[in-house]
Design a protein around this nucleic acid. Structure first.
Lengths: 243, 243
DNA sequence: CCCACTACCAACCATACGGTTAAACCAACC
DNA sequence: GGTTGGTTTAACCGTATGGTTGGTAGTGGG
């Protein structure tokens, strides 16, 4: 171990290396990331990088575990205040949004891993995600048993809440590009994706759910069923199994 | 051009090469894909690959454009039958689900591109995605003006519908792995993610939207507000701007 | 003043990778 | 049977990449 630092060295090089690595990994993926480029970004010699942190794989592992730890902490903090299932769902979305704000590279890395099958993910990271899904399962079960939520599969919810929030953060670049090709009329979503995602998931698109609509008829604001076939065509989704 | 084929050659090599390439690209990403590995998978010599299809970049472009063309066609077909906004949303989800069933590599490639900023995407592909979002915008505006849907940002909807559907298809591998670490109690979502996603998005999690709930009080099935603070804590989402 | 020890670096190495080439192969046509 | 021309291949090439090495510089302790 270092007895002290040999030189007045500005800032732990390990941190700047990890940061640079994280950005490279986020932009190019694990396979695409170049160790030389990481060293260049961090402003250190490549050998220093190996000296301080280790090889490419351990670099990646450190970045991932650090990010997962952060989202775990944020999630626990965010959940502490919430007592309702709605509040908890929003808190989950907010935790990942906050992660994306603090460490913009993390959502990309996480999504990439999910897509790739998690082969490069260390087990603790996988386990952490598992715990989050479990948590969501419990929230859903409790809320469903109290009649607050409809029965919904926790994996589906997780994908939509967490995946949706992270995709918002991550796709800003493509959206810009797409907008340049198709002209202006695509409005940007809210700056805070967590709210947008959670709100839509909680309330749904439909102004009135069918269940309530069946009881009292046609008291909604819009003109609704002007087209004659709408009544039949409205029945799109078979509602046997839970979502 | 070939006058005939020189050898009784089983099947166009171009097709098997493209398929092999697509799978490599899906598994490792563009940077991570190895041309030698693509050739090996396709069972052809590497030089043959260059002779028939071209270099790595053009290989990738062909795969992407082919996939985008397929989803475009499927989407148009699916939409033709639907007249209601609900039906159209489901049709969009179904089109991407069908793409993922027919070409399992496509969702991975598309998601990867979205994450990476679309830098390797050919313009026609970007434009196609732009058109889909435009379409969703129109659906949302019409439905909102008729009072069927609440006002929602089309990008948010697109991310949740299309992203959510593709993430379902793509994360099966990680889910298996996570389940092995956390034990059984994570139920798999439905086999048809399009339905799960669209249904949840249309109806929402909450059994009763607040709007309707405010009018007649506490007629829901569950015990509901046993905790005294739930009434206040229920107000999580500021509802100023459209989702 | 010298030793031991950490921090650092330029240059190097082996391999893997994308891409090319020159020659062989083979069905069809004369 | 020989020529033609698309098709296939083994071997090759230059470069980029992950990783290493031998050595230097600076620092605190003796």
């Amino acid at each position: 171990m270092p007895k002290t630092s040999a030189r007045p060295q500005q800032g732990n090089p390990g941190q700047s290396i990890l940061r640079a690595a994280a950005e490279e990994f986020a932009e190019r993926g694990f396979a695409g990331a170049r160790v030389d480029e990481i060293a260049r970004r961090a402003g250190v010699n490549k050998a220093m990088l190996y000296y301080h942190v280790g090889d490419k794989a351990s670099l990646y592992e450190k970045v991932v575990l650090d990010g997962v730890a952060e989202v775990t902490v944020r999630l626990q903090e965010g959940l502490r205040k919430e007592t309702t299932p709605e509040g908890k769902i929003v808190a989950i979305a907010r935790a990942f949004e906050a992660l994306g704000m603090a460490k913009p590279y993390m959502p990309r890395i996480i999504l990439r891993e999910m897509i790739a099958g998690g082969g490069d993910l260390p087990s603790p990271a996988l386990a952490a995600f598992g715990r989050i899904i479990q948590l969501e399962r419990v929230i859903l079960e409790e809320a469903a048993s109290e009649g607050i939520f409809r029965p919904v599969n926790p994996v589906t919810l997780h994908i939509l809440v967490v995946g949706g929030t992270m995709l918002h953060l991550v796709t800003r670049g493509v959206r810009e590009r797409i907008k340049k090709l198709t002209g202006p009329p695509i409005p940007e979503p809210r700056a805070r994706p967590a709210e947008a995602v959670a709100s839509l998931l909680l309330e749904g698109l439909l102004v009135r759910p069918r269940r309530a609509r069946a009881k009292d008829k046609e008291q909604t604001r819009g003109p609704r069923s002007l087209k004659g076939h709408s009544a039949k065509a409205r029945k799109v989704l078979p509602k046997k199994e839970p979502i």
